[in-house]
């Protein structure tokens, strides 16, 4: 009898002590990478792949990855390096209620009737943000000012020129630099359609995201562009292509083009623009280069600049 009890205890302990030592990739939308350690060669993640806890993951652009750890799913998105162990810890912290707990939670929730007709009538405004009838159109723009996308994504900690399109109206523009919870960082009144700021001099945190927008008068306003400061060393690591055989075999010009494209993929649009301009300065008559740069500008919502570049090419 004693042995039997001991065996059951051991079994119970074993069941509870065995923790999953790896995370399983359930699904990948786009491209996501796993790094065995900092600075290691990136491994493209695919469904069913097991990730060791001592590593990092990162998604490219708007890609997402769904991971499974200890019965809980974790959604990873964004270009930041994320510790796998940290993700696992966060997933493990999610409370797992027992059946009885879930039952009584359900019963008491039913009794409370939070979404009763009376409550909806009383607090109807709370429920108005969820649904609306109709689709988004283009007839009446909500934002009349248009900032240029080059200063979105990842920006270097250096002097940056923030640009926007000129618009019909009077009075100066107001440049707003704010945190994600809408606290002001800087506010400047500008006559021109550009302003140069030294981001190194501003008290901006590396791990934080910021946004900027333009306003003019009381009504004209632009949408917010989100950016974050990304040190040059990180950008270099993100765009390191030296492990790609095709990169090693490419000509110096092609290499620069590949880097520019990679910079764009990593949302370092400002740096990508610089890379294209540097390339164009070295070979101004290279048709392929001009077309690629024009395509980049078009993707950045700078169609007039792109067409003028192509027009001068045709000349």
């Amino acid at each position: 009898m004693r042995a039997f009890t001991l065996a059951i205890c051991c079994l119970f302990l074993q069941q509870n002590s065995i923790a999953q030592n790896e995370i399983i990739v359930l699904h990948v939308s786009g491209q996501a990478f796993y790094y065995e350690r900092t600075g290691a060669k990136p491994i493209s993640m695919y469904p069913g792949m097991g990730l060791a806890l001592k590593g990092k993951v990162r998604c490219k652009g708007a890609s997402t990855a769904k991971l499974l750890y200890n019965g809980s799913t974790i959604i990873v998105s964004g270009g930041k390096y994320r510790d796998v162990e940290e993700l696992a810890r966060a997933a493990g912290a999610a409370s797992q209620m027992s059946f009885t707990g879930r039952f009584f939670s359900f019963v008491t929730e039913s009794v409370r009737e939070e979404n009763s007709q009376e409550n909806i009538k009383k607090y109807h405004r709370k429920h108005m943000g969820k649904t609306s009838g109709g689709i988004k159109g283009y007839a009446k723009p909500e934002y009349t000012l248009k900032p240029l996308l080059l200063t979105a994504g990842k920006l270097p900690s250096a002097q940056i020129v923030f640009r926007w399109r000129d618009s019909i109206g009077e009075g100066p523009y107001t440049f707003h630099l704010i945190t994600m919870d809408e606290k002001p960082v800087a506010q400047l009144i500008v006559r021109d359609t550009a302003i140069t700021l030294d981001l190194d001099k501003l008290a901006l945190n590396l791990d934080e995201k910021y946004s900027w927008y333009i306003s003019r008068g009381d009504t004209a306003k632009s949408y917010q562009l989100i950016f974050e400061i990304c040190p040059t060393s990180v950008v270099e690591r993100l765009t390191d292509l030296t492990h790609e055989p095709t990169f090693l075999e490419a000509s110096p010009e092609e290499k620069q083009l590949m880097i520019a494209f990679r910079l764009e993929e990593e949302q370092c649009f400002y740096d990508a623009n610089d890379a294209y301009q540097r390339l164009l300065a070295t070979a101004p008559n290279n048709l392929l280069l001009r077309r690629m740069y024009a395509a980049f500008l078009a993707r950045m919502d700078m169609a007039p600049e792109a067409s003028s570049l192509l027009f001068s090419t045709n000349k």
């Binding site: 399983i24 990739v25 359930l26 699904h27 990948v28 939308s29 695919y46 469904p47 069913g48 769904k66 499974l68 799913t73």
Partner: peptide, 11 residues
Amino acid sequence: ENQFVQFGPKD
């Protein structure tokens, strides 16, 4: 579907 590994055509 989360109880199964899911591949896209690209994967």
